[in-house]
């Protein structure tokens, strides 16, 4: 289990680094898919089997695929991509600048209680327990999310209209 965790987190971090470093947006999107699927594997390792499926279906299946579709639909030429001659230097400086923050977080995390996380039995994280929790205690947020999705849909249609004049 430790080995699986290490491999999955390696792939997640490698995909994230590739996403930040890639020049072409399509390469970034493909790296992000690697990260998303590795994170889905981590969810499965944490016995969140329903979220594992949701992550793969919604994120990798819908969001990133829509993303790659838009990139191909725009058909961006090399001349229209932003020129970033100092890209690697700014990324390096960004990492240097974030190091103190990360040290601070690590120091805080070190004093936190921690225990080994194991796969749990008796249906924890499966669709039944998640549905019971969702419709018993989280009904109002669930309905608000549906309204939010409707608003996003209308907003996307308004943005996508042909502009007059």
């Amino acid at each position: 289990m430790d080995m699986i965790f290490l491999i999955l987190s390696f792939f997640a971090i490698a995909g994230a680094v590739g996403m930040v470093l890639a020049h072409q947006p399509v390469h970034s999107a493909l790296s992000l898919i690697l990260t998303i699927i590795a994170l889905a594997g981590l969810f499965a390792l944490l016995s969140a089997s329903f979220l594992f499926m949701v992550q793969i279906i919604v994120y990798a299946g819908a969001v990133i695929t829509l993303f790659i579709f838009i990139i191909m639909f725009l058909n961006v030429k090399e001349a229209n991509l932003p020129k970033e001659p100092n890209k690697n230097i700014t990324i390096f400086l960004g990492f240097i600048g974030l190091l103190p923050l990360n040290f601070l977080i690590l120091k805080a995390l070190y004093h936190m209680p921690s225990k080994a996380l194991v796969l749990s039995q008796n249906g924890f994280g499966e669709i039944k327990s998640l549905g019971m929790e969702l419709f018993e205690k989280w009904l109002l947020p669930f309905e608000l999310i549906s309204i939010l999705l409707l608003v996003a849909l209308i907003g996307a249609v308004v943005f996508g209209r042909k502009e007059e004049g």
Binding site: S9, I13, L42, N102, L109
Partner: peptide, 12 residues
Amino acid sequence: ASSLFSYFVVAM
């Protein structure tokens, strides 16, 4: 290796 701490480090 797979404790709460290491998951937090990966997320960080």
